[in-house]
Write a protein that binds this DNA or RNA. Structure first.
Length: 721
DNA sequence: CCCCCCTCCATTTTT
DNA sequence: TGGAGGGGGG
């Protein structure tokens, strides 16, 4: 491949970035400026022009999707396999290091990954093991605390002993949780990064090996790196290698989960010889959209500075629609979709972007009513589904009996008579002997401290796992899975249940078998295929929906829209309190992140951007008036045009009125709002009446006792007026 | 031991 | 308003 070909369809700045002499480089790449293209071409350039071995390249991303895209584009550009190249997410690369150096990292060979749900369960156990109340000490909050500390590289012993009681207790929970993880040979997501960092920090020889191996380190979406990710990258840096970081401070929208926008500035400081290249030419959006986006983002202070421009047409102005209520807003979107479809656009050319997931409901209802197919992004992924996690739980126990998280999950799933009573005895034993639940279960069978029934069931369970474990070394992965389904009765359990839900669960389990059939081990480690598959399942949770729909409107949050583009974009709920969100509006820093989120949303649109807001919105069961978002005004009015529609939509009669029309007559002869007297509670007003005959229930607001629900036939009410 | 009802709560998400 | 989780009852 000639250098010409690699630089052929690049603009001046892209070309400079791609063909620069090897050295540290910061590429500030605006939205739609060909960031991935530069990354991919840079890698190709290093290989072809600078004679870098693919083996010496490390490319890091945040999502599997981005990593896959880089891989695919390199492969099609260079027509070579990327097998020797390290291209992956922070987590997958850190995991790869841990696999290769598990001893130095203080792990056992068969360590497995804990996803956030499992993590929460284990934290809950840690809380209980400290004899703390898990209502006062919410596992969710502790989980946040622990992950937050890990993201900053802080271990429990490093948390000041003179800290306040709350922090102290949290540190204790953190510590106890770490103990449980060690015992079960498990690591959570944050731990993968922290361990990999500590591995390199504590083993200079290993560090040196990778420093000399990776001659070029390329990082995508650098503005999203957190403290530990940055430190890890900095460790890998060396005089003899160089780093190319690509990012956009204006698109930093993950501050709330630890991303440090400052890392970009830190990079320039820590690598003073790094050159900076700006990619400002946008190939995606019309001039009108870019103009408004630029205007908006100028309201943020402390920017590195960047102004998107386009060589293309100005296009039509951004359309602003002021809806009467959220139903009207959704109807407007549906109407416009139909109009664009009639002009020849595909439904999949259009996306509806919203700030929070709950906003999708009304939109979905109206699209459904208009007969428009749609797809909602987000939600359960394949490997996160309960039935899949059950199956994986069994596979994990087969791979490692001391995996407490897996043990807890499947020991009584499907029900085999090992209830909470038995389990708490096992948990107690495990706690006292500092051993895994598995060992505790085995010894409590031997010691005869369980009821015969429980003992039997438990012994059966232990036996079953042991047997499957024995088989597992001889047979293929999919055979292990199929056999596991037979032995555990998991598929049978779901297929005996009725309904659409149960049917899809069985289908998912079958899908898991085909996933195991298709799986082939990616890299050579000492890990077994089973272990490797389990890691794969944890690190790559899979698609949201099993099968891609053909042609449908895309519904997603603004966050999940990052990196995507659509000819037509609807940004809905552009109101104060919704966007910017109420909870982010007060703090200047968080407001700026909301503004960046708005910027990200706008720059998704290629041809036409709609902004809609609703004057009246039903939220949390009450109606509230909203003003248009401050962001709209900040966009300036030279690229905006307001759309008006004549039809006004009335809200349907509220559900309460539907249930009880005004002429409602109950067989009891009682009327809502009527005064009644009760022997014990005295006088009150009848609020509600449900059911009939002996099942009739009443809700009464008593003067002295407040609202009570009673069964009418027992209440002996006396009506009066 | 399971199911139902009540209460409480309510951004954004990847790995 | 609606979903999830906890507690109580059958």
């Amino acid at each position: 491949m000639s250098s010409n070909l690699l630089l052929n369809d690049l603009n001046e700045h892209q070309s400079i970035a791609v063909s620069a002499k090897p050295g540290n480089m910061l590429v500030l790449a605006g939205a739609g400026s060909g960031k991935t293209k530069v990354l991919v071409h840079r890698i190709a350039w290093l290989i072809h022009q600078e004679n870098y071995s693919p083996y010496s390249i490390l490319a890091v991303t945040f999502t599997n999707k981005a990593a896959g895209e880089i891989r695919g584009r390199i492969e099609s550009l260079l027509r070579m396999s990327t097998a020797g190249m390290w291209v992956g997410t922070f987590h997958s690369i850190a995991h790869r290091l841990l696999r290769a150096h598990y001893l130095e990292a203080g792990l056992e060979q068969n360590f497995q990954i804990l996803d956030s749900e499992d993590q929460k369960r284990l934290i809950k156990r840690a809380i209980q093991s400290l004899n703390l109340d898990d209502n006062t000490w919410a596992p969710k909050e502790a989980q946040w605390f622990i992950n937050n500390k890990k993201d900053k590289g802080i271990r429990p012993e490093k948390i000041a002993t003179n800290a306040d009681f709350h922090t102290q207790t949290m540190a204790n929970i953190y510590n106890a949780y770490e103990g449980l993880c060690r015992q079960s040979n498990l690591i959570d997501f944050a731990e993968i990064l922290l361990r990999a960092y500590e591995l390199l920090l504590k083993n200079p020889e290993t560090l040196q090996h990778y420093q000399t191996r990776f001659k070029s380190i390329l990082v995508d979406e650098f503005q999203d790196t957190n403290t530990i990710q940055y430190r890890w990258l900095k460790l890998l840096a060396h005089e003899q290698n160089h780093m190319v970081i690509v990012g956009d401070d204006d698109q930093s929208i993950y501050g709330w989960r630890g991303a440090k926008i400052e890392n970009i500035k830190k990079f320039s400081k820590d690598f003073p010889n790094a050159s900076t290249i700006r990619l400002e030419q946008n190939y995606r959006s019309t001039g009108a959209i870019l103009n408004a986006a630029n205007n908006l983002i100028c309201h943020n202070g402390e920017r590195l500075g960047k102004k998107l421009w386009s060589a293309g047409a100005t296009g039509s102005p951004i359309a602003l629609y002021s809806a009467f209520n959220e139903i009207d807003e959704a109807k407007f979107v549906a109407d416009q979709v139909l109009e664009w479809v009639s002009k020849g656009y595909s439904r999949s050319d259009m996306a509806v972007l919203y700030r929070s997931n709950m906003q999708s409901r009304v939109i979905e209802e109206q699209l459904l009513q208009a007969g428009i197919t749609y797809r909602v992004y987000g939600g359960m992924r394949f490997f996160e589904r309960a039935e899949i996690k059950d199956a994986l739980g069994y596979l994990r126990l087969i791979a490692n009996q001391h995996d407490d998280a897996a043990f807890e999950r499947v020991v009584n799933q499907p029900n085999r008579g090992i209830g909470d009573r038995t389990l708490s005895i096992i948990r107690q034993a495990a706690k006292e002997n500092f051993c895994s639940l598995w060992n505790a279960a085995v010894s409590s069978i031997q010691q005869n401290i369980l009821t015969p029934r429980a003992k039997n069931s438990l012994a059966g369970f232990i036996n079953m796992i042991q047997q499957m474990q024995q088989y597992s070394v001889e047979i293929e992965l999919y055979e292990i899975t199929e056999r596991m389904f037979q032995c555990t009765g998991l598929v049978e359990f779901y297929s005996l249940q009725k309904g659409e839900k149960a049917r899809s669960k069985v289908e998912n389990l079958e899908e898991l078998v085909s996933a195991t059939k298709n799986y082939s081990i990616e890299e050579d480690t000492e890990a077994t295929v089973l272990q490797s598959f389990l890691s794969h399942a944890s690190l790559e949770a899979g698609e949201t929906q099993g099968s891609e729909q053909q042609d449908c409107v895309q519904l997603m949050t603004l966050h999940s829209a990052k990196g995507l583009e659509f000819p037509i974009v609807f940004m809905v709920g552009v109101e104060e309190g919704v966007f910017p969100h109420q909870m982010s509006a007060d703090e200047p820093g968080r407001l700026e992140e909301e503004r960046r989120l708005c910027y990200v949303g706008m720059t998704r649109a290629m041809e036409q951007l709609y902004l809609t807001y609703s004057e009246l919105r039903r939220q949390y069961g009450r109606e509230q008036y909203h003003r248009v978002s401050r962001f709209v005004q900040e966009m300036g009015n030279d690229s905006l045009v307001e759309i008006r529609k004549k039809i006004r939509v009335q809200r349907p009669i509220s559900s309460q009125n539907k249930k009880f029309p005004s002429n409602f007559n109950h067989e009891s002869g009682l009327k809502l709002g009527q005064n009644v007297r009760h022997k014990k509670f005295g006088e009150g007003t009848l609020l509600n009446l449900e059911g009939s005959g002996s099942n009739t229930r009443v809700e009464i607001n008593f003067k002295d006792f407040g609202i009570k629900r009673l069964v009418l036939s027992y209440a002996n009410l006396e009506g009066f007026s």
